[in-house]
Amino acid sequence: MKLPPLSAIKAFEATARHLSFSRAAEELFVTHAAVSHQIKNLEEWFGTKLFVREGRGIRLSRSGELLYRKVSPALFDIADACRTVKMLVNKESLTVGCIPSIANRWLVPNLNTFTSFRPDLDVKIVYATVDDTLEDNELDVLITTGQAKGHHIVSRWLFSRANKPVCSKAFLQSHDPLNTPQQLLTAPLIHDENRKGWQEWFEAAGVPWKATDSWPLYQDFNLLATAVIAGHGIALCPVEVFRLEIERGDLIILSDISTKNDMGYYASYRENTSDVAIHFVEWFAQFVAEH
């Protein structure tokens, strides 16, 4: 492509838009003489005048008008393309590791409440486990049980981890009364990963209980939740995390006796993290507190 000096084209476009050498110079952060010199070089390159002096001002010549109509949109398109590429290259990112129970019930369904205010942000949500740490992963935020381990970590409280026995409305209607811990002894008790949770709960209730292998174990907490909502039995669930299911009537709390009362779910980040990570944690903590 045979092109004139692009610096001269840029000076011409600014001068033609303002119809002023001085205002073009101010926009381009150069001197009036520098703009005049660029225009003179461009006119020599074309072999024609691009501006005509008119009193104390200037106007575009016929050739200048033709050139301006083509050049100005092209320069704006170039600038827009450069902004887009630069934004993609320098786009802020946020990687959040979250345990499935919180991710599926609270984070993912409501994430657009946060991203709608930051459409330029590249957000990545990944599953985390209770054993994950910020030091071992390339995460900006970690949402899990307990405060994240490590040095210079800030943890923000989200939910209580207090567990209570729950079941579905249909299950309750089709079984004998389940008003006391003793009445739960013969009911189908479903378990999360192991049977230790129910052992702790019956101890807190002051009722002897011997674990049996007659009811299934669900390794994934979301599988356990699906099973209890479907009416397969009674499960120990953190009632704060299942707040919405309880409010809708999908789950019914069978007893006020609870375990893990001193434990909780937290969102954690490093002290030297980005502002966007801090804003995300503040948003999520406020959101779950208000809903």
Rank of each mutant, 00 (worst) to 15 (best):
L223N: 11
P5R: 14
C82Q: 14
N104H: 12
M263V: 00
E26P: 00
F51W: 07
S72C: 03
V281D: 06
M1R: 08
R270T: 10
E282C: 06
L178Y: 02
K40E: 09
G47P: 06
T48D: 11
E203N: 13
Y68V: 07
A81T: 03
S61C: 05
A230N: 08
K149M: 07
E247F: 02
H151N: 15
L67T: 04
V281M: 06
D122A: 14
S36T: 01
L134V: 08
N90G: 12
K86A: 12
A25H: 01
R156W: 02
V71G: 01
L60Q: 07
Y127F: 13
A16N: 04
Q173T: 04
A11W: 00
L3P: 04
A225F: 02
L178H: 04
N261T: 12
C167R: 03
I153F: 01
L42F: 09
A289S: 15
S274P: 02
C167Y: 00
I125E: 13
T180W: 08
D192C: 09
A277F: 03
V241M: 05
S255H: 07
P188E: 01
F284P: 00
P216F: 08
G249Y: 14
L139Q: 05
R105C: 08
L251M: 06
I252G: 12
E27D: 12
R161E: 11
L254G: 08
G47K: 03
K149R: 10
M1N: 08
Q199A: 06
A14F: 02
A14I: 00
A148L: 09
G146D: 07
V96W: 04
G47R: 05
E240A: 13
F29V: 14
W201E: 04
E43D: 08
H279T: 03
T226A: 03
L184T: 06
K91N: 11
S36K: 13
D250K: 11
A285V: 05
A227I: 09
R62F: 02
W215H: 10
K49T: 09
S61T: 10
I229N: 04
L236M: 10
H175V: 00
I78E: 13
L184C: 11
R161N: 11
E13R: 15
L142R: 02
N90Q: 13
E26I: 00
P5N: 14
A235L: 03
S274N: 04
H18W: 03
A34K: 14
K210P: 00
A16G: 05
E13H: 05
N272A: 15
E193T: 15
S36G: 01
E54F: 08
K210G: 01
C82H: 06
E240Q: 14
S101Q: 10
F287M: 12
D136Q: 13
V239Y: 06
M87C: 11
L158A: 02
E240R: 00
E271D: 11
P238Y: 11
N194H: 13
R118W: 11
V166P: 05
C167A: 15
I234P: 06
F171Y: 10
S274C: 07
K260I: 04
H291C: 07
E290H: 14
K2M: 12
R83Q: 09
N272Y: 07
